[in-house]
Simulated assay, not measured.
Amino acid sequence: MKNKTIAIIPARGGSKRLPNKNSLLLGNYPLLVHSILFAQANNEIIDEIYVSTDDEKIKEIALQFGAKVIDRPEAISGDLEPTITTLQHVLQSINEVENVVLLQPTNPLRPQNLLKQCFEKFVDSNSDSLFTVSRNHHKLGKISNDKFVPFNYEIGQRSQDLEPLYFENGLLYITKSKAILDNKIITENAFPYLVNHIFANVDIDTQDDFNYAEYLLLKMGV
């Protein structure tokens, strides 16, 4: 029997800046369903799909679309609760899991072959975790005493000459369950998988973010 790989989708009910965002309709499906469908399309990798939630409506949606639901206790459902405690709670509720694919519902749009490519690299690199990153092309700086202090460039420098910097885009994470139980999602030997795709710029926290995702969904026909 192969080592079990599960997908975990953390989907709280409470959201202050965009109320009920995980159940809002994005295109033809509620927001969190996009991550469920992505996991189902990768069933050669993912054995089971779990949605962790404290919300009855989200639970109903998840079950309707074929995911299993882990009821999240109120104690780990607050605004400031880190994702790691949710993952640990799911793992403590089920048995014999080797790998966890974390799919955040706020990153609903992902390139079609992304998980397959990432999982192959995860296995080949012999890492305990993998996470997706994208190249930053902005001229960044700090504001100190009302003055802008360049961080990654010198004034007048061309954007194409910037030293490469990367950001964690949140599209997906793969982590061995033993590392999660040791309080780590991104481990010391994590492999940063580079994704140069417009979907890497979608992370829904506000209505503007949601509108942008709707635009891309319509424009790209995914």
Results as ranks from 00 to 15, higher is better:
1 M>E: 07
1 M>V: 08
4 K>V: 04
5 T>P: 02
7 A>V: 03
10 P>N: 10
10 P>M: 04
11 A>L: 04
14 G>L: 07
16 K>C: 04
17 R>Y: 11
24 L>K: 15
25 L>W: 01
30 P>K: 01
35 S>I: 01
36 I>Q: 01
38 F>C: 12
38 F>R: 11
39 A>Q: 10
39 A>N: 09
42 N>W: 02
46 I>C: 04
47 D>M: 02
47 D>A: 03
47 D>L: 05
49 I>K: 13
50 Y>C: 13
60 E>W: 04
61 I>P: 01
62 A>M: 00
63 L>F: 01
66 G>R: 03
69 V>K: 02
71 D>A: 13
71 D>V: 08
74 E>V: 04
74 E>I: 09
75 A>P: 02
75 A>Q: 06
79 D>Q: 07
83 T>L: 13
87 L>A: 08
87 L>K: 04
88 Q>P: 01
89 H>W: 09
92 Q>K: 13
92 Q>D: 14
97 V>L: 03
98 E>Q: 14
98 E>D: 15
103 L>M: 04
106 T>G: 13
108 P>Y: 05
111 P>Y: 05
128 D>R: 14
130 L>S: 11
132 T>A: 11
133 V>C: 12
133 V>K: 06
140 L>R: 11
141 G>W: 06
142 K>P: 02
144 S>T: 10
145 N>H: 10
157 Q>I: 06
158 R>V: 04
160 Q>C: 09
161 D>G: 01
162 L>Q: 10
164 P>K: 07
165 L>R: 08
166 Y>T: 10
171 L>W: 06
176 K>D: 06
177 S>Q: 06
180 I>T: 07
180 I>V: 12
181 L>F: 04
182 D>W: 00
182 D>I: 03
183 N>V: 00
188 E>F: 03
191 F>K: 12
194 L>I: 11
194 L>A: 07
194 L>V: 11
198 I>C: 02
198 I>P: 06
199 F>S: 12
203 D>S: 14
212 Y>P: 07
212 Y>H: 12
213 A>D: 11
214 E>G: 13
215 Y>W: 12
218 L>K: 15
221 G>H: 09
222 V>K: 14
